[in-house]
């Protein structure tokens, strides 16, 4: 059980939560995630540890509301407990001083990108961050990203904020302008697929952090499996980061949709019964 110590809205559907979790705070590194579960009947979902404070014994999560469990989490308040929190899970990001790092995040991927941006910056790299969203009100964590980036480029599909265009256009602008040594992309599978194709064109080593569906997060079930370089890998123990140019994103896209209908129905029901009451 972990108590919520702070809660701050970054936007309507994105919240920062600080949890009391001294053991996890002590051992976590950028790239690690936790699995949380709310209540006896809840499901287990993975969330990246955005930052931690060893002295206070806390970890910070940045959560975007997309379905039932994330919505339940957003509905908790300071003083409430998150029933189960386990971690740190996964392999830590391999952070080194390499030169210029181009980070690209879209949608649900912006939150898990934050600790990676911070890590590369603190390791002494030049960090350029591209944030992509459909429109202005969906741009999240801009301020936090600016703190650890030498430059932040914002791309919106409809041009309501930053530049009009896709994440790949923002990335190409940078690649054409200066030498990029490494790229990290996190976001919806479709975005990672095209971001990865872009960097492949320019031969830039690229890591993608895969947000597959998970259950246990300890390598026990295989729900998170994905094909990398033709081999089946388990994202929770072999990842979450992989060489993006080897990942079969089409397969990942397909696997993410496995429970779409059930998730949608459950979310609608949740919204009707819970959120209208609240």
């Amino acid at each position: 059980m972990s108590k919520i110590l702070e809660k701050e809205y970054f936007s309507k559907n994105v919240v920062k939560l600080v949890l009391d979790a001294p053991e996890i705070a002590k051992t976590r590194k950028p790239g690690h995630f936790v699995i949380i579960k709310i209540g006896d009947k809840g499901e287990r979902i993975p969330l990246t540890i955005a930052s931690s404070d060893i002295e206070k014994g806390t970890i910070t999560l940045v959560v975007q509301k997309v379905g039932v469990t994330s919505a339940k989490l957003l509905n908790l308040n300071v003083g409430d407990d998150v029933t189960d929190v386990v971690g740190p899970l996964g392999k830590a990001t391999h952070i080194e001083k390499i030169g210029t790092v181009l980070c690209a995040g879209g949608g649900v991927g912006v939150a898990p990108l934050l600790p990676i941006v911070e890590g590369f910056k603190k390791a002494g790299n030049r960090v350029i961050t591209v944030l992509a969203a459909r429109s202005k009100d969906l741009v999240i964590l801009e301020e936090q990203m600016r703190e650890f980036s030498d430059e932040v480029i914002i791309m919106t599909d409809d041009g309501t904020y930053g530049k009009k265009g896709l994440v790949t256009q923002g990335m190409e602008e940078v690649i054409k302008r200066e030498k990029v040594d490494l790229s990290v992309v996190i976001g919806p599978a479709i975005m990672m697929k095209f971001a990865s194709l872009t960097t492949q064109k320019y031969n830039i080593t690229t890591y993608a952090s895969l947000n597959t569906i998970m259950v246990d997060g300890t390598g026990m079930c295989g729900a998170c499996r994905i094909s990398v370089g033709g081999k089946t890998k388990f994202v929770c123990v072999d990842g979450p980061e992989f060489d993006a140019h080897q990942v079969d994103f089409d397969q990942m896209l397909m696997r993410l949709g496995a429970y779409k209908d059930k998730e949608y129905a459950a979310y609608q029901e949740y919204l009707e019964t819970v959120e209208t009451v609240a």
């Binding site: 259950v215 026990m220 079930c221 295989g222 729900a223 499996r225 994905i226 397909m254 696997r255 496995a258």
Partner: peptide
């Protein structure tokens, strides 16, 4: 085709 949806390990199936 082993990674298609609807194909589980028994661990995942039983855990769920």
């Amino acid at each position: 085709g082993e990674n298609y949806n609807g194909i589980f390990s028994s661990n995942e199936y039983m855990t769920r």
